[in-house]
Design a protein around this nucleic acid. Structure first.
Lengths: 214, 214
DNA sequence: ACTTACAAACAGAACGTTCGGTCTGTAAAC
DNA sequence: GTTTACAGACCGAACGTTCTGTTTGTAAGT
């Protein structure tokens, strides 16, 4: 028995990243995913090709195909990066800091999550999931998990009219903000989107409230 | 002066369709667009190719390229078909019939407009407009016109807290319903979407009301 | 400590397929 | 007889994927 079996999983272990191989590898993956986000935002899922990502990231073709066996695998990995980012605004309020008021939470979600390169890339990915079976197979479970996590995170700090109302309302808010990205095609005035967010936040704070302490 | 100049506009005149040529032509265009809607729904914008539409419509390649010089032109024409359909639920209430209550209006918009093959196709088109410059050029003005028309149609029958509030709220509702199409990727339970629509409608009817008669 | 073995990390050429667009040919309407 | 409405072959480009090198880190044997 000469040596240990080579790593099979493409999901790196918790304690990996210590060796030079792993560190280089992770850095390359992150670099490629960052380029993929930019391409998804600018060109959309269909026009996001290996060639485009390769150019944007400044890496070789082989580097991409080595880490991601297919286009779907690349986009799925990129989606996981985006999802973990999208959980942060709620997560950093979990422990010591006080949660934001509903109005501020919605405005912040729009400004720093949905209406950003990452947010627009995520819309592209969700849209692609509808028709790309391979992508759907790679992402469906992860999206369901993330959704559960997001809803649980909200009910910890906010309440509606009953127990499950808060998560229902927050799902509504997420849907609205996502739809707003597409609404940009209907109006030439970008400020109108801001007015919509503001009005929506005003409506939401009549239904969703900070959970009273204790 | 031998004959009138050949048709240039892809928008048929009001009084056309009388000759056999025109009737056949319009029927073919409608047939192709109907197939395009099905393809956009099932395969998405990127995978909606001439070959797919050709197969779905049961026509030759030449028939498509004859009526639509480019893929973008085909999709743009399809979008116009969908937009005119999406205006109907509000339009048939314009004259004799009484407008629907807010709650019913939202549920009806979801069931018969957004959550249908046409509604999902429209989401694909709006998403594609973000990155496809040629498609954007063909559709931007039409979308802006449609948006104005939709907002005007709403303010005729509904009121919010002030003059422009109703159209703001209706734009919000449209964005939410659109975003809901993409939310389907987050939950394995399709009934959850229905609960979201119901809850949203309940929230909306506290802000948007039927215009009092007179 | 030095060699050897080997797998992972790239690099880049090559592949077959499919795409959107064009181009020629034919039949029917006007 | 001229134009329109199709039919279908054809083309170059771009796509995702696969393949064959080359380099590099690292652990095992000596």
């Amino acid at each position: 028995m000469p040596r240990p079996a080579p790593k099979v999983s493409d999901q790196p272990d918790q304690d990996s990243g210590t060796s030079q191989h792993d560190r280089r590898s992770q850095a390359m993956r992150a670099r490629i995913c960052r380029a993929a986000i930019a391409c998804l935002d600018r060109y959309g899922y269909a026009e996001t090709s290996f060639a485009r990502v390769q150019e944007k990231a400044g890496v070789s073709r082989g580097a991409i195909t080595h880490h991601f066996p297919s286009k779907q695998a690349l986009v799925a990995a990129t989606a996981l990066v985006l999802l973990s980012k999208a959980l942060e605004p709620a997560r950093n309020r979990d422990s010591s800091d006080a949660p934001m008021p509903v109005h501020a939470l919605i405005l912040a979600s729009w400004d720093s999550v949905v209406n950003s390169a990452g947010g627009r890339a995520m819309v592209e990915i969700l849209s692609a999931c509808r028709s790309d079976r391979a992508l759907h197979a790679l992402l469906a479970d992860k999206l369901h998990d993330w959704d559960r996590q997001s809803r649980r995170s909200i009910t910890r700090h906010y309440v509606g009219t009953d127990a499950e109302d808060a998560e229902l309302l927050w799902s509504i808010a997420r849907s609205f903000l996502r739809g707003l990205i597409l609404h940009e095609q209907f109006t030439a005035d970008p400020a109108y989107l801001g007015r919509m967010v503001e009005r929506f936040a005003r409506m939401m704070e009549t239904q969703l409230h900070l959970r009273p302490p204790g």
